[in-house]
Nucleic acid binder design. Structure first.
Lengths: 146, 146
DNA sequence: TCCAGATAGCTATTGCCCATAACAATACCG
DNA sequence: CGGTATTGTTATGGGCAATAGCTATCTGGA
């Protein structure tokens, strides 16, 4: 089975030589894959991230979560509402204006299922990388944004 | 100047240990930076990518460009229209249904300016990465999506 | 030569994600 | 105690990408 016909032209393409461009493409491709798997749980990546952070940090507030994940407060509202509507999180008043977030039992189950999918996916990602480059990816990436 | 007040809580956050998550965050952060710089030229990243590919491949078609960049044919239309309206590209009929894309003089200038910004940015990106990890980023990223 | 299937370019539409602005209520700090 | 900062929220808009569908055209095999 030939990999190229009349329509798959070999094109001069310097873009993959640019780390920024490859970063963009790799992120897009992997996000699509992981997103499809998490969708089987009715979760998006950002939903899973929120569940994981709540699990690790009982009684966080929505604002603190947003700061950690770089999500605007305003955009946390529909996100948390969805998780609340599905019975995955609970909110308890901390004081007159803040509310503590915590996982329900269902939320913990869902979070653990998501974590399983995520870890399996991460393993697959790393497996695609030639061994000599593998351990350098995470520290290199984290140097770019943390 | 303290880096933490009452509101910047130290949170347990296992997410940056996940390559997929760090990939997402790094891509988002770097895209925002590069995007802001290219905006000074009135270009988005995808616009610059298209200009670069046309420069390297005279007379490509919109469809071939879309395949190379993973952009739907339908979404190439407004993209190319914008570049056309700004006088950066020209279209010449190849046959009854295909059209060849090429840069105008203004398009080449704009493309070279964008390339300057991009290369400078790429250099800065790499400079942020500890030397021992630096050369591994590109091959690791490309292993994830190519 | 002719025709079925594939392709090109395009329109229209939709949903999703994110940014911004604004607001009332509340908490904090000097 | 009073000004300032923060919280949670609503409303809104823009940008981007995916989908479906359409017409015209090209291609390759019978």
């Amino acid at each position: 089975m030939s990999n190229s016909n009349r329509y798959t032209v070999i094109m001069r393409d310097p873009l993959p030589q640019l780390p920024g461009y490859s970063l963009r493409r790799a992120a897009h491709a992997t996000a699509a894959e992981l997103g499809a798997r998490l969708a089987t749980l009715g979760l998006r990546q950002v939903d899973a991230s929120v569940l994981i952070l709540i699990a690790e940090n009982a009684d966080v507030t929505a604002s603190a979560l947003g700061r950690q994940l770089d999500i605007q407060r305003a955009n946390m509202v529909p996100l948390l509402k969805k998780l609340d509507d599905e019975g995955l999180i609970e909110r308890q008043p901390l004081d007159g204006k803040s509310q503590a977030l915590l996982l329900t039992a269902a939320g913990r189950e869902r979070m653990e299922a998501a974590l399983g999918i995520i870890h399996e996916f991460e393993d697959e990602l790393l497996a695609r990388i030639p061994a000599r480059h593998r351990d350098h990816l995470l520290p290199a990436l984290n140097a770019l944004w943390r």
